[in-house]
Design a protein around this nucleic acid. Sequence first.
DNA 1: AGTTGTCAAGCTAGT
DNA 2: ACTAGCTTGACAACT
Length: 292
Amino acid sequence: MKIGYPCINQTINCTANSTFRLANYSQARLIDTVTKNLTCLQKILEFNIQHNLLFFRISSDLIPFASHEICDFDWPTYFKPQFQALGQLIKQANIRISMHPDQFVLINALKPEIISRSISELEYHATILDLLELDQSAKIQIHVGGAYGDKISAMQRFVTNYQQLSSKIKSRLVIEHDDRLFSLQDCLAIHAQTNIPVLFDFLHHACLNNQETVREAVILASKTWQKADGVLMTDYSSQALNARLGKHNSTLDPIDFAKILTATQGLDFDIMLEIKDKERSAIEALKIYNQF
DNA sequence: AGTTGTCAAGCTAGT
DNA sequence: ACTAGCTTGACAACT
């Protein structure tokens, strides 16, 4: 099991998700920002290797405005050497990589322009993983999307639109069930029609489920991952106390985490700690895991 | 130097 | 009808 955290490291003073305002866009600004981001990404990865955190989510902001029409700069060619070097580092240390485009990526949208913008954004994410020369186990996770008042149609639209995606995207795309709309079972139904792997989220499952136990759910999700996809990816957070259902905790709850480990003992998966204090909780989680 | 409104993009649920 | 929340974090204009 590999343990990791998403996008941001709070220990080292370096971020790989610097951006700027669209109004200030220029090629020089883009090159400057991306150079900084790639340098910091390397430092973060080196930190992770030192601490044996071998699962990492790369920020979608690595290349600001990459999928926006304003960007006509051939950044993949320009930064190819840097990406290759980073890819080497990742592969040598055997780090698992994921990316998570934000809520604007909806391949089941009703408006064609939202779908086409979403595809551009997915293309951008896939390009990063391709430039790193990572195999098909490096994934891009999205949710099923909106329900638009008709869940069944929304799921069907996902299936139809998914089938039209390029293999560059399809080979990396996975779906994650969410905490109020599309359950694990909904995602499994989509998997049955598309073969898309299903990423498992412990907190979402606690919020919305069909009475499977955690262990049963992890096994079901695992089966959607083929050998080339790598082992199941999971997201983990615990419920914040006295907050809205689904709200992430600000620091690791060691008791809850140990409970999850007990429930899933003997199963193989990678786990991403979606917790506010990032690498601190990931390091803590690794300690608990090593005592198991 | 510190504070704070705002940022490319969308949907849902609660008010 | 409006807006907080979603991985919210970071930019940039203003004190």
